[in-house]
Design a protein around this nucleic acid. Structure first.
Lengths: 212, 212
DNA sequence: GTCTATAATAGGATAGAC
DNA sequence: GTCTATCCTATTATAGAC
């Protein structure tokens, strides 16, 4: 179904999503007007409403596309097997690579969590977002539990650790100027990405290892 | 100077800040209108412009007040002495307490980092925010470096680790519905806060400990 | 310090021609 | 599928009475 989501849209629809993704990531749901999106695509404002019947629907479509892209890669990465420790590290590395390769992703992901108050909680779009999220957090939480049961990870609350890990991995790539000033370099530069990846992996590896 | 910021405003000014803080945290800069703030305070819209000459200025004032409140507590906490490990853990615990005690803080902090594109980079307000941030990250980064030099923490890039720590500690309290569904409970509930605090402390302690 | 009134602009969304 | 024109509402901000 996630594959259908990725290919089941016209080329104009995808161009709209491309433009909207960048804008929503930069300025958030309320900060972006349909006119600005239309200008970016090279269309009149009204034409957008032919492809997406409301701003809400456009925003949700952007979120679902990102979540499915990330979800597909993570699930594939997890399926490649290995011990829980190996799989977790591969998974964190993969997530860093996706976020580093798509500068809009981290911001839009975090923003979408904050803007839940601004958007309808019900409706089919919201449920699609929901399913996509659970398709990611579910397997990761299960992986942590497996690692604890196997004695590879120390005992901890898997769900709380997942929450911490999301912040740990995603936030740096959403931190913008804050991160840039802290590091003295663009967060998306190759060297910074590798540094962030290795520091994240070290923190996760050592932080979750069972004491000997 | 941060003390002056905290007391150097009329009671009406502070009431406006209280209302604006909650609204900006919920819906972001662009998502909140001056009218909504005015209604919340019980004033006419125009009266707000007597206290803050623009929406930008109001938003910056909200950010600076939060940053100074957090900064004051962190700096005080750090000044209480101890080994780097002890001080870092006290610092993380204190930060968790502040964020848990003020549900608007984490969201507004993260949002303010994303909305840098939406607001002027120059000007006195932006510089005040800047100073407040450096007053927090500077001491923490120095603490990490001290711990590494003392052989208590493993070698790592202090600045990159600070970025990870901010995400790790701040994000959960900004995660809203996402965190709520993941944990199956309100993130700000006493038991959840304690769980998040202890899991954060464990991850930081084990994750930064020098190998023996 | 707070108010009413107003300016000037932009917002989301729809109707209907082509 | 895209366009122009339009509707209605909301936006930030200012002017000036009280």
């Amino acid at each position: 179904m996630s594959v259908a989501t990725l290919v089941g849209r016209s080329s104009t629809g995808n161009r709209i999503l491309d433009v909207a993704e960048v804008l929503f990531a930069q300025r958030g749901y309320a900060g972006v007007g349909m006119r600005e999106v239309a200008d970016g695509v090279g269309l009149g404002k009204s034409s957008l409403f032919h492809h997406f019947k409301s701003k809400d629907e456009l925003y949700s479509a952007v979120c679902v596309r990102i979540l499915d892209t990330i979800g597909d890669r993570l699930v594939r990465s997890l399926a490649r097997g290995g011990t829980p420790g190996v799989r977790l590290e591969r998974c964190v590395g993969e997530l860093v690579d996706v976020l580093a390769g798509h500068p809009s992703y981290a911001r839009l992901l975090l923003r979408s969590m904050f803007e839940g108050d601004d958007l309808p909680d019900e409706g089919p779009e919201s449920e699609a977002v929901h399913r996509s999220i659970e398709g990611i957090t579910g397997p990761v939480e299960a992986l942590l539990t497996d690692g604890m049961d196997a004695g590879e990870f120390r005992r901890a609350s898997a769900s709380h650790v997942v929450l911490l890990l999301v912040g740990l991995v995603v936030f740096p790539f959403a931190s913008g100027e804050f991160g840039e000033e802290l590091l003295g370099a663009d967060v998306f530069e190759g060297a910074q990405v590798e540094r962030l990846k290795s520091e994240s992996l070290n923190l996760v590896r050592e932080g979750l290892r069972a004491r000997v």
